[in-house]
Structures are given as C-alpha cells and as structure tokens.
Write a protein that binds this DNA or RNA. Structure first.
Lengths: 233, 233
DNA sequence: CGGCACGTTGAAGGGCTTCAAGCTCTGTGG
DNA sequence: CCACAGAGCTTGAAGCCCTTCAACGTGCCG
C-alpha cells in the first residue's frame, strides 16, 4: 500500500499531489504484472480502468480488418495508458500489448473523474498529456502522408535514440531495447521486408550496425539528414 | 454582447453553463470574420487564443518541409479550434485555413483555464472533445498505414456524406460543400491526379457523379463496400 | 473574353509490396 | 551437450500502385 503510493508519486503525472488524494488513488490501485506478448486490454472492450506503467514496455496497437497491426505509440515506465478511453467510458481505441515484461497499476476511471473534479492541477496535467498525444498523432499523420518509408524509419530511429539511446565512447548510439524489423515496420506503415532492405543499405553505407532485434546508430548526424530530408550531405 | 452569449449557448460545448460563467466567457469573446483562404492562425505561432466556429468551414492543415500540405481535420459550425494548444500555451500544431467564409469567436486560453478550474462539467467536455479527436487521429493513422488510396478516398466520401450529405429522392447523396480533388488528396495523403483518376473510374462505373468542386454519390452502398474492403459485391 | 484555377488523361518510372526461398541465430528439450 | 524447431532476417524477382511530369481541356469570374 505504501509502495503503491511511492510508485504513484514517482510518475510525473501523480507527483506533488495532496496526501489525501494520493491516498485514495493508491488505495484503489491494484498491482498487475504481465509477460511479453500479453494484452493488458483489448481493442473494443469497454474502458473502465486505465493503467500506470511502472516497469517494462507496452505498445498501443490497432488491428486492421485485413490483419495488419499498426502501432500507435509505445509507452515507457511512468506513462499512463488508456486514460482517455477510461475517463470517457467508451471502448479502448486499440490493444495494449506488452513488449517487455511489465508491472502496472490499474486504476478505475470513475475514481479518476471524481478526483479530477476536486483537484484542478491534476485535471490540468491529464489534459496536457492528452493534448501532447494528439499533437504527436498529428505529426505522425503528416509523416505518413508526406514522407517516404526511408525517411519515416530514420525518424523513428532518431526518436528512439533520444528516448532510449546509450551513447558510446566512439559517438555511436546503441538503442537499449528489443526492436525487430517487424516492430519498425508496424510503427511506420511499412512491411518488414522493406525495413530489412533499408537497414541493409544503411549498414552497407556504414550508417548503422544492426543485428537480431538490436540496432546501433553509427552516424547519428547522417540519419538526421535522412529523417529531415536535408539537401546537402 | 447578448448575441455572443447566444452564439456560445448554441454550441454543444458551452450549452447549459451557469449564467455567471457564460457571462465571463461572452464578455471576453471577440468576434472575428475571415474570408476564404485566410489563415485564422498559423502553424508555429504561440497559442494564446482559441476559436469557436459560428459559421463557414475551416480546416486544420500542417505544412511539410517539402511544401506539401496535409489536412488534419475540418471543422463545421459549433466546433472549437485550437483549444488544445491554447490551453497548454504551446504553439499551434498547424494552420487554420478558412474553406468557406467564416465567423468565429476568439477566446483567451488563460481565461478558459480559470473557468475550467471552477466549472468541472466544462472541463469534462473539453477533455471529452480532445480525447475524441485523439481517437479520430488514431483511426486516421491506421488508415494511412494499412489502406490503399482508393479505400481512403471512399472512406472520406462516406464520412462526408454522413456529415454534410443531402439525401435526394432517388437515393443518391449530394455533398453540400465545395470539395476539390486537391482537398480530397490532402485529406488522404494522395495526389490530385490520383484522386481524379479514381473519381473518373467511379464515374464510369456509375458510383458517383462529380463536377467542379462538387460530388454526388449515386450508389452509397457500393462506396461503403470499397471503404470497408468488403469481400463480395 | 481572357485569365486562371480546376480538372483530365497519358506516359514513364520508382517505391514499395508481395510472394517465395533460404539463411542465421536463439533457446529449449531430449 | 547437441540438435532441432522456430522466430527473426535477408535477398531476389515480379509487379502493382501511385507519383511525377507534362500537355491539354473546361468552366468560372472579373
């Protein structure tokens, strides 16, 4: 119970809340563990609860009718998952699939409503998060509409480098996560074959070093050039 | 001043508010008219105000570096524009371009903050709107990632038919707005040539009847079949 | 009536997908 | 410990979807 409070406090969204509020939330929170490939919730289910990710990695994925999976976003510890749907009480817009073994706190959306109405700063933060995600989604739409696969993949790698990149002594950046060609493809509306070909080409040119579910960026700047479609070399 | 109140009351978002609140909002609101192709706000500007659309039509468009414009969403009377950015105080995620001569009410984001903190139901509605738009954006991402241009165009037409379709006696649906090939292209990440070819093909098959900036759907059901990629005919 | 935005159509080509075959690792159970 | 199954990856060939460029209609409005 106390560890649940501590866990909540360490997330950006629930930090610095009045003790009373934190108590109520921690009291209602239920710990939940899930292994790789498990679904925390499924697309289409009525959303009564949302989740705080404590450890591991989770992605939000939409299934298209033809069986293609599309990754909407991936979450790291501290992120809130499914809060939009849970607050409104509609269905989840996608499934939450565990990428790396995860611990989560499950919280009821209804309680969140009550608390938000009493604690304005909390409402502010939620709105801030949802708006930020909306803007990310808009960026994603622009990229899918106007850019080539190459460019989008480069962009993904640059973004991942900023988020989970381990800078090496020689200036290269190692991406600290399991990342298959398939994953990259589903994040960018492409096929795994195309991703494989692009990475192979980059490897031939010495831009990256890639292996099974693992990628190291050798020339970060060159990747940015591709991602931003800058003219000169 | 009284007409501003009335205008606000007739939008879904500001209906049924306490008179005191409505007063303050109406008082701060400033009427604004804009002609076709004008920009209500520009991508990248600091967002201090948001807008309520009273009449006309407006689209939110992102400009890519290579000069391609991508339409994120289009707004009809009663919609709120730029509220996400204005509440957070960051920059606008895109430009708001007037499609048909529009009247708007401009409201300061800071005031909205204050009012939201006092009036929980209002905060609820804002959040509901932003979440709904996030989910729309996610759908759009899935479509762009997994579907062909044909399918996306069909989907756009079906959606427009629901929103601004005038049902005729013979079962056809006339889209009551100016809609160029270019517009359809920018809504779906395609080129105007491709859209033209697709519409020509559909016209040959008797699915639609299209002219200059004007489209009538002759066989709505057949279009749905294409949009949803249903197997049989 | 001339200008201009919108629209059509063709031809060429490129980017990406699809299908298919084979390879390389990883992990697991005998 | 080794072998093997299977997941992940690579590569080729064929082809389609869509874009790009270009030239030419068409209709609207000043």
């Amino acid at each position: 119970l106390i560890d649940k409070q501590k866990a909540l406090q360490q997330t950006e969204i629930f930090a610095d809340l009045p003790a009373v509020i934190l108590d109520r939330l921690a009291d209602a929170a239920r710990k939940h563990a899930a292994g790789t490939a498990e679904l925390v919730f499924r697309q289409g289910e009525i959303a009564a609860t949302f989740y705080v990710l404590l450890s591991g990695r989770v992605r939000l994925v939409q299934h298209s009718l033809e069986g293609k999976d599309v990754t909407m976003s991936t979450f790291v510890p501290g992120d809130v998952i499914g809060i939009g749907a849970a607050l409104i009480g509609e269905t989840y817009p996608g499934s939450a699939e565990v990428l790396e073994p995860a611990e989560l706190l499950a919280l009821p959306g209804s309680l969140m409503w009550q608390v938000m109405n009493e604690c304005a700063p909390l409402a502010v933060r939620i709105l801030r998060i949802v708006v930020a995600r909306l803007h990310e989604a808009h960026d994603h739409i622009r990229e899918l509409s106007a850019e080539r696969v190459q460019q989008r993949i480069a962009r993904s790698l640059v973004r991942l480098a900023r988020k989970v990149g381990l800078k090496q002594a020689d200036g290269s950046i190692c991406l600290d996560l399991r990342l298959s060609r398939q994953d990259l493809a589903q994040m960018n509306g492409a096929t795994l074959e195309t991703v494989s070909r692009i990475l192979s080409a980059w490897e031939r040119e010495g831009l990256v070093d890639s292996g099974r579910e693992q990628i190291t960026i050798l020339k970060p700047h060159a990747l940015v050039v591709i991602a931003e479609d800058l003219p000169a070399l």
